[in-house]
Design a protein around this nucleic acid. Structure first.
Length: 282
DNA sequence: ATCCAGGAAAACG
DNA sequence: CGTTTTCATGGA
């Protein structure tokens, strides 16, 4: 079975990284194992201290997917500038932002709106079961995430079995608009942050929050700072004390929060966001 | 029953 | 233009 030995200064926590809510298609299995579908791979992976053991993908694939090729220490140090985020960093030690396939990430965050993580996971899983290709692995059946054309050609009726609610037409329209996902990903990846953000927001069902998540989790735009209800609460309580606890959520306020975060935490504020989110008290 | 969840679009004034 | 209402789903 292939393995990666992490060097001692290469912090990485598989549990934090897969469990923090950035990605929706991994499941915890027995004895610390995780299993998930990434592209056409079914991957089984487990961490034992500084050793990663896995099957279903190559060493370079795993290294790239989990961002093991980036030096986490200076990134974290760059935004660790107060006791509150320091506590979040220590609580979630080794959390890395992964490199998700863009098209799947796009649909995932369209399905995430006004919802919670278990529901999002169910929706993405059902879309894969309905429209994806079967993969057999260790005696079980898994499903790839479908191409845009597989969804776009299906019409509304099969999509309705996925229980997306009012998001059904958003997913359908966006699937029709994307065309070739590889070409689309290249286009977005080549653009600077703000233009890429505006481009994503042209898609049906993609507003500021979804666009920011997609840019952070699929395109390594670390200056992105997604503001959901949890992050808004944390920012209001710990960083922007002038925000009102029960104020209506407006686009102006969203911009205020993300621009504050970009200045306060710096160019890796998206990483700061993920530590704050993962360490949130429930 | 009412409120909430990794919000966005449409309607409104 | 900024602000309010509506949208579908399931768990607490």
């Amino acid at each position: 079975m292939p393995a990666i030995n992490l060097s001692c200064d290469q912090q990485f926590s598989l549990d934090q990284t897969l469990g923090c809510g950035q990605v929706f298609r991994w499941d915890r299995a027995e004895n610390g194992w995780w299993s998930g579908v990434v592209g056409s791979h079914v991957i089984r992976i487990r961490q034992n201290g500084q050793k990663l053991v896995f099957e279903g993908a190559s060493v370079p694939f795993i290294t790239r997917y989990f961002s093991l090729d980036t030096d986490l220490q200076p990134i974290v140090a760059s935004f660790n500038r107060d006791p509150f985020i320091d506590a979040a960093i220590r609580r979630c030690d080794g959390l890395r932002i992964i490199r998700q396939p863009g098209w799947e990430c796009l649909i995932s965050y369209i399905c995430s709106t006004n919802s919670n993580i278990p529901m999002i996971r169910r929706r993405i899983g059902t879309i894969a079961e309905q429209f994806g290709r079967e993969i057999f692995f260790r005696g079980k059946v898994y499903h790839t995430f479908p191409e845009p054309s597989a969804i776009a050609c299906s019409g509304v009726t099969p999509l309705e079995t996925c229980k997306l609610g009012y998001r059904t037409p958003y997913v359908l329209k966006t699937a029709c608009a994307i065309g070739d996902p590889e070409q689309w990903e290249k286009t977005i990846a080549s653009m600077p942050f703000e233009p890429a953000r505006r481009e994503l927001m042209k898609l049906s069902g993609v507003g500021p929050k979804a666009a920011d998540c997609i840019l952070l989790f699929a395109f390594q735009k670390y200056e992105s700072f997604p503001v959901d209800v949890w992050i808004r609460r944390i920012m209001q309580q710990h960083y922007i004390l002038t925000l009102k606890a029960d104020a209506a959520k407006t686009s102006r306020e969203y911009d205020l929060i993300r621009k504050f975060a970009r200045e306060y935490f710096g160019e890796f504020c998206g990483y700061a966001q993920e530590y704050l989110y993962a360490a949130r008290m429930e």
